[in-house]
Simulated assay, not measured.
Amino acid sequence: MEPTVTPAATPSSVGIRYGLIIGVVSAILSVIQLSLFEDPETPFRWVGAIVAIVGIVLAHKKFKELNHGFMSYGQGLGIGTIVSAVGGLVSSVFSYLYMTFINPEYMTRVMELQRAKMEAKGLDDAQIDQALGMAQKFSGGPMIIVFGLIGAVFMGFIISLIISAFTKNTRPEFE
């Protein structure tokens, strides 16, 4: 009988697992924010960033636990980026579904709120219409998913650059 060897975890396996968890938690937070707060620019929106940071740190910890305490900087960067990409995709798909099927009037309310804010700043109607027209092009339909994913990957990469510097533990060369 041959001994079984448990393979070490890969960055992608840990990243996907934690990305799905982060995506579901972000979707739940989105439900809370979209249903309780009229203005999308509340301080509550930063809770999602905290969730992403905690998720990346926990994913790094789990990877190191499964790999005998070792994780290179590149592996940490990859894990964090994968966590962010998967979490961003899940969260963006939820946002698309919410704004398209559950509450299609949501974007209209947001645009009206933005118009009021721009009028309070003293912008004229032509400038406001141009800004809102541009925003509407990029915030409608599947573009929500595309820009949500791009934003999540970009921010996750930046956050992972910093977190990986602290959580890395490279394997000694002569082991």
Rank of each mutant, 00 (worst) to 15 (best):
V51K: 07
A52I: 07
G74T: 13
G76T: 10
V51A: 11
L66Q: 09
H60D: 04
I79V: 08
V31E: 03
E41P: 00
A59Y: 08
M71A: 12
H60M: 03
F70E: 11
K61E: 13
D39L: 00
V57Y: 08
P43E: 02
L29H: 06
S30P: 09
G80H: 06
G74E: 11
L66K: 08
T81K: 08
Q33T: 13
I32Y: 02
I56G: 03
F63K: 02
N67I: 15
E41F: 00
D39R: 01
L66W: 05
V31M: 05
Q33H: 14
G55K: 00
I50S: 10
L29A: 10
S72D: 13
Y73D: 09
E41M: 03
R45M: 04
S30K: 06
E38P: 03
I82F: 11
S35R: 11
V54E: 05
R45C: 04
Q33P: 09
P40H: 00
V57T: 09
G48S: 13
G74C: 10
V57S: 08
G69H: 13
T81Y: 09
F37Q: 00
L77Q: 07
K62H: 14
I82Y: 09
F44S: 00
G48T: 00
V31L: 10
G74D: 13
S35G: 11
F37G: 01
L58F: 12
H60I: 06
I32E: 01
E41R: 02
L77H: 06
K61M: 13
G76D: 07
I56F: 04
G55P: 01
I53E: 05
F37K: 01
G69T: 11
K64C: 09
W46L: 13
I53R: 05
G76L: 10
L77M: 12
